[in-house]
Design a protein around this nucleic acid. Structure first.
Lengths: 87, 87, 87, 87
DNA sequence: TCGGAAATCAAGACCC
DNA sequence: GGGTCTTGATTTCCGA
């Protein structure tokens, strides 16, 4: 059977290059995402040291997220109605 | 190396029986779930043949689902406040 | 601008009633589907507490599903042959 | 019973302000995080349209992540040794 | 009906 | 160790 590296060798140089670029882009984006996650954790740390209950804060934020998505849904629904009217 | 069937043969009869029962239960439940999915698709078919726009209906239903979860979140938040008061 | 509720008001009473019924039916079916999903999750819980590897069980079930659909395909094929013979 | 808003009113103005700031910061960070997640999804879309198998790419990336953390572990170990030598 | 895009769901990681 | 977050897999959905 053909080994993995043999197979990789058969990829064109350009293809291999493209592959490397994709991986690099994804890894960079994931790195930034991980940094943001760390930042968020840090803020929660501050929140706690300030005497707030992080559990409640989390719940508030998740509630607001749901509210936002409800607004988005309502707008989407309204847009659909508008289209009906326009036609 | 020991083949899969040899290995299965080494399971006790009772264990094998139990395994078959689990699989049967899951398959039955998944079958029922699939039936319900088919029923839902069918209702959307009726909806469409009735002249309603299924896209809108879907949006309405997802909005109502979000509303329900918002209510749940609000209750959870309220519960947390209540605990604070009780303590 | 005409509000959404104004527009809904313009739907005939019967149409509105029908719409409500459709939504109610779909929501009921989706509720039942969600219950079954919960049941299935529960069975997997039992499976695990029984010492089986759920990952393997999942694979077995998906294989059996594929086999079943293959069988169905083969039967369909056989039916076609049969029709040819009959005709 | 005291309403939620009554209770919030009892918080000092400064405290309330601080709370709002924390929530705003977290929501902003989460927004950016969500954008990055969308970007990543987009890149995977490109990957696919380029003819690569995303499953394989994902596996490569997760392997590289593990390798990176192994390297980090080894460096940490090496640092420990170095400290011992230095002391 | 197929294929891709999106939602959903469960498992694993990870932090507290 | 409990709970939350994230990821990966599966399923579902829609358009072509």
């Amino acid at each position: 059977m053909m080994s993995e590296s043999d197979r990789v060798d058969q990829l064109g140089q350009a293809t291999r290059e493209k592959l490397k670029q994709f991986i690099a882009r994804i890894e960079r984006l994931e790195g930034e995402k991980a940094e943001l996650a760390a930042d968020i954790r840090e803020v929660y740390g501050e929140v706690k040291s300030f005497g707030f209950d992080t559990k409640v804060i989390r719940k508030v934020i998740s509630l607001r997220k749901i509210e936002a998505s409800e607004r988005a849904e309502q707008e989407a629904l309204l847009d659909m109605y508008m289209e009906v009217v326009e036609d």
